[in-house]
Design a protein around this nucleic acid. Structure first.
Lengths: 202, 202
DNA sequence: GTCTATAGGCAGATAGAC
DNA sequence: GTCTATCTGCCTATAGAC
């Protein structure tokens, strides 16, 4: 008893989201227009308004989909990796994948534009970060408990540090068009959490 | 033999820069307009175009002034602090001051919008980061040499990590309107560089 | 669902008077 | 230097035909 829906509706809707997502991650929410999306898909602006009444609704749908995809990726990391340090590495690789597509993290981009975002989008951005921090906090707590991760202070603060470092490293690396800069930061970041016996302070 | 100039010219010019700088750090380069600045100063848009022919030129002037002020602050840090860790702390405090004014770092904001920036502004943004990385790299080299700083790997990579972490922590903390989140990250970041004898790995 | 046509507003920018 | 007036273009959004 599947819900019946014209193929085009779901197809166009997700094609719009794909295009808009790429544009926002590339140019920002204030840097793209309905005209850009319409041109990319070969349809008119009016058709977009049928699927998403306004830019605010499109933006909300964008974050919702991105957040749920990210949540799936985190769950996948949990099932695929046992060791906490490996989970952390996999988490960093999510960001690297985004940067490789010459994109900024969607919510990192929206965080920069936060003050100009339509009201309904704001909470959704904050929720994304909250979810990431919560997941990392659990990971850090577990890693500390089973002694696979070494770090000082509150897990919440270190989780905040990790998110901040990854978002910031992306932000700064992108103008250089140089993923190596990002990767060097990740390596350096992760090295602090590993077994101190293998770390060298020179 | 001072250069003579009507008081208003220099006055208006820097008032425009002050207003535009605040607006860009708050709302982004694509999130403010000549009309915003004009309204704030009680003058017309046409007057702005007299001082800055176009938005691109205004943007360039904005970064130039910001970068030179930042360079002064770095020089000031070097003369006021002997210990490398203290210099690092003072550097982080520069960022904290910006965040306390409910602003994002100008160049961090522009880095997010990089793909939509007028061409002449792009190199100037990159130069800003290069300068910061270079200053931090020297600081890290000196700190390592006199054993006042502990860290692993190449100084360049750690410099990149520090800039990324500070920019990213600002980016993520601002939507929360919570400077404490930023300060916690800074404390956590700096603790890794201090004397290991006083650090606790719990 | 998608189109054409168009409204209404704001953007960056210019000409020319004072 | 700053003004008024105006241009052109793009923006988001809507009405109504197909």
């Amino acid at each position: 008893m599947a819900i019946r829906r014209p193929a085009d509706q779901a197809g166009t809707r997700s094609a719009i989201l794909d295009s808009a997502e790429r544009l926002v991650q590339h140019r920002g929410f204030n840097g793209f227009s309905y005209a850009d999306v319409a041109a990319e898909l070969g349809i008119t602006k009016a058709a977009l308004h049928y699927h998403f009444p306004g830019k605010a609704e499109l933006g909300e749908a964008l974050i919702d989909r991105y957040a749920s995809r990210f949540a799936d990726a985190l769950a996948e990391i949990d099932t695929a990796n046992v060791v906490a340090l490996e989970r952390l590495r996999a988490y960093a690789n999510l960001y690297l994948g985004v940067l490789r597509g010459e994109r900024m993290c969607l919510c990192g981009m929206l965080a920069a534009e936060y003050q100009t975002l339509p009201d309904p989008m704001r909470q959704t951005v904050v929720d994304f970060f909250d979810h990431n921090i919560a997941w990392l906090t659990r990971l850090l707590q577990n890693g500390r408990a089973d002694k696979s991760l070494k770090f000082t202070g509150r897990p919440e603060d270190t989780a905040q540090l990790i998110v901040g470092t990854l978002e910031g490293a992306m932000l700064v690396a992108r103008p250089y068009g140089d993923t190596a800069k990002f990767e060097a930061v990740v390596t350096r970041l992760l090295s602090d959490f590993g077994n101190p016996a293998t770390a060298r302070s020179r």
